[in-house]
Computed example of a mutant assay.
Amino acid sequence: MAPRLAVVEVTRHRPDRPAYHAKVQLLNATAVNAGAHGGWHVTRLAAADLTLVELLAATDDCDAIVIMGGEDLTPRFYGGGAGYEGETHHFEVADAGQIALVRRALDRGTPLLGICRGLQIINVALGGTLVQHIEEGIHRNVDVPIDEILREHPVQLLPGSTLIESLGETDIRVQSAHHQSVGRLGAGLVPAGIAPDGLVEAVEHESAPITGVQWHPEAPNSPADQLPLLLAALSSQLAEARVADQLAA
């Protein structure tokens, strides 16, 4: 039986922002398709369209989880204020549900990958904070149509990180489009990748199979093997966890 992967996006409904919604849906669908091609039985869920209880129930039997990108997190979850530059629409129900998924994954040892906003969810779920707006630079294109917002830049993966094992190299090229970044790291998290300007672009948990990348491996112009390799890492982490359970039994 194929292992079960939950791909959890923010929402399926953005009638007021059709161009942005179309872009996000394309990225989410790419992740779902990559999971299916990688041998997973994929369940696609929208956290804002379910209650927290419904989301936890729908993912209860999943073997691994991917939390996708989207809008800014509601500031109250990390002790921030409203009215900051570049602030987007917030989906508080999605934030609460995805934060709960991370905390349960940590408790259970469930492999979990966070992409862009997903990295920020991981950090906030474990008590970290966010920089609410970063200066214009290498991390996104500004004043362009949504289809042109993604920007390529290098990331250096840090020695000893599982991301080096997963991606097979230290210096990688990524596609990103974020205006927020990691502030204080959450409990148990360590940096795993750094951008040339010093921003943390990837995090890992020091003992749990939880990884977050600030870039978009599912973007059309990302290296073709980047997302498949990250999903394969979830499979490896799942296999290791099952072996450990058998040895402990």
Score class of each variant (00 low, 15 high):
residue 184 R to D: 14
residue 128 G to V: 10
residue 217 P to N: 09
residue 145 P to F: 02
residue 78 Y to M: 02
residue 61 D to K: 09
residue 236 S to G: 10
residue 181 S to P: 02
residue 225 D to R: 08
residue 131 V to M: 06
residue 167 L to R: 09
residue 102 V to Q: 00
residue 219 A to P: 06
residue 5 L to C: 02
residue 34 A to P: 01
residue 93 V to H: 02
residue 127 G to W: 11
residue 223 P to M: 12
residue 36 A to G: 05
residue 169 E to M: 10
residue 4 R to D: 07
residue 95 D to A: 09
residue 227 L to K: 13
residue 39 G to N: 10
residue 46 A to K: 09
residue 192 A to P: 03
residue 186 G to M: 14
residue 147 D to M: 05
residue 88 T to V: 06
residue 105 A to T: 12
residue 50 L to K: 00
residue 16 D to E: 13
residue 43 T to G: 02
residue 26 L to F: 06
residue 7 V to D: 03
residue 222 S to L: 03
residue 116 C to R: 03
residue 73 L to S: 08
residue 68 M to P: 02
residue 193 G to Q: 07
residue 191 P to W: 06
residue 174 V to Q: 07
residue 14 R to Q: 15
residue 225 D to G: 02
residue 12 R to D: 13
residue 24 V to Y: 07
residue 77 F to V: 05
residue 82 A to I: 00
residue 242 R to W: 07
residue 214 Q to G: 04
residue 140 R to C: 07
residue 196 P to R: 13
residue 2 A to I: 00
residue 43 T to S: 14
residue 125 A to D: 02
residue 142 V to Y: 11
residue 127 G to K: 08
residue 241 A to I: 07
residue 8 V to H: 08
residue 109 G to L: 01
residue 4 R to Y: 12
residue 95 D to R: 09
residue 88 T to E: 11
residue 153 H to Q: 14
residue 249 A to P: 06
residue 4 R to P: 01
residue 54 E to G: 13
residue 187 A to N: 01
residue 19 A to Y: 02
residue 83 G to S: 05
residue 140 R to M: 11
residue 169 E to I: 01
residue 39 G to E: 06
residue 239 A to Q: 13
residue 238 L to Q: 12
residue 191 P to N: 11
residue 241 A to S: 11
residue 119 L to D: 04
residue 241 A to P: 05
residue 194 I to M: 15
residue 162 T to K: 04
residue 86 G to P: 05
residue 155 V to Y: 09
residue 44 R to K: 15
residue 202 A to V: 14
residue 242 R to C: 04
residue 164 I to N: 03
residue 86 G to Q: 05
residue 242 R to M: 03
residue 83 G to L: 01
residue 45 L to R: 03
residue 208 A to H: 02
residue 155 V to D: 01
residue 237 Q to N: 08
residue 40 W to Y: 15
residue 161 S to C: 14
residue 171 D to I: 14
residue 169 E to F: 00
residue 243 V to G: 05
residue 221 N to T: 11
residue 235 S to G: 14
residue 204 E to A: 06
residue 71 E to K: 05
residue 103 R to F: 02
residue 234 L to V: 05
residue 241 A to T: 09
residue 134 I to W: 04
residue 43 T to L: 13
residue 210 I to N: 04
residue 125 A to L: 11
residue 208 A to W: 03
residue 160 G to M: 12
residue 89 H to R: 15
residue 219 A to L: 04
residue 70 G to M: 05
residue 17 R to I: 07
residue 120 Q to D: 12
residue 205 H to R: 00
residue 104 R to Q: 09
residue 38 G to V: 03
residue 100 A to Y: 00
residue 133 H to L: 00
residue 179 H to P: 06
residue 244 A to V: 15
residue 185 L to I: 14
residue 146 I to L: 13
residue 75 P to F: 01
residue 171 D to R: 15
residue 58 A to C: 01
residue 139 H to T: 12
residue 191 P to F: 13
residue 144 V to G: 14
residue 225 D to T: 03
residue 246 Q to V: 10
residue 30 T to G: 06
residue 137 G to N: 08
residue 97 G to H: 00
residue 222 S to Q: 04
residue 91 F to A: 06
residue 201 E to D: 15
residue 65 I to K: 07
residue 74 T to E: 13
residue 158 L to M: 12
residue 115 I to S: 04
residue 45 L to F: 01
residue 37 H to G: 13
residue 78 Y to G: 00
residue 229 L to W: 07
residue 65 I to W: 04
residue 205 H to L: 01
residue 84 Y to H: 15
residue 206 E to G: 11
residue 46 A to G: 13
residue 121 I to N: 05
residue 213 V to E: 07
residue 207 S to C: 03
